[in-house]
């Protein structure tokens, strides 16, 4: 049980009441909890591409961000590319870090822990012999991913470790990266 948030007013910018309210409401309306996330990616030139995200489906109907967002991706000159943006791999690492960091803030708010600063450093190891087709025994993706958090908060070291542990347990991108998913790709 958690009573700290009833006695301490912490401000991490997370609306815990709204999230808990949504959780309670969605527990009784499983259909409304079915979301579909989308991105549309267009090739620009070379390995340069531009993805746009705007609409998504959830709460039983079409939804939309307040505006559209653009994510550009390319490769650096070491890959003979024009470097118009981060590699898709780095976008995945950024997504993992953002998901875990947002989770730390949400869990801290729920547990009544005031955060002052949170930094996540993410590294993914990759043997590019896989993507280059040099060695069929090497997988394309990461051989290991490491996330290192530096957290300044009004909490003990064990409480901070527990925040980070709980954030992983509830993270979508952590699940996406650590578990297999069936992916179907079709041509219209």
């Amino acid at each position: 049980m958690n009573v700290q948030n009833q006695v301490k007013a912490v401000q991490n910018g997370v609306n815990t009441e709204a999230l808990l309210g949504a959780r309670a409401a969605l527990a009784d309306m499983p259909a409304a909890a079915q979301f579909t996330w989308r991105a549309t990616c267009e090739w620009v030139d070379g390995t340069h591409s531009r993805s746009v995200v705007k609409g998504f489906f959830g709460l039983g109907e079409e939804q939309s961000h307040t505006k559209s967002f653009t994510v550009e991706s390319d490769h650096p000159p070491q890959f003979a590319a024009a470097d118009n943006g981060p590699t898709p791999i780095e976008i995945v690492l950024s997504a993992l870090a953002s998901c875990l960091t947002g989770g730390v803030a949400a869990v801290a708010q729920h547990r009544g822990i005031q955060l002052h600063a949170v930094t996540a450093k993410v590294e993914g190891d990759m043997d590019i012999a896989g993507v280059l087709g040099i060695d069929a025994d090497v997988r394309n993706g990461f051989s290991a991913v490491r996330v290192s958090f530096d957290i300044d908060a009004d909490a003990t070291a064990d409480e901070i470790a527990a925040l980070v542990a709980q954030s992983q347990k509830r993270s979508a991108v952590f699940d996406i990266v650590t578990n297999p998913t069936n992916v179907s790709v079709s041509v219209a």
């Binding site: 542990a165 992983q168 952590f174 650590t178 297999p180």
Partner: peptide
């Protein structure tokens, strides 16, 4: 155990966190 695919058992990469959580 996250999936069984083509005769292979596939395991989640989250073991370290679950062990840390149990230790904490």
């Amino acid at each position: 155990l996250a999936a069984v695919n083509d005769g292979k058992a596939l395991f989640s990469g989250s073991l370290a966190n679950l062990c840390t959580a149990a230790d904490l």
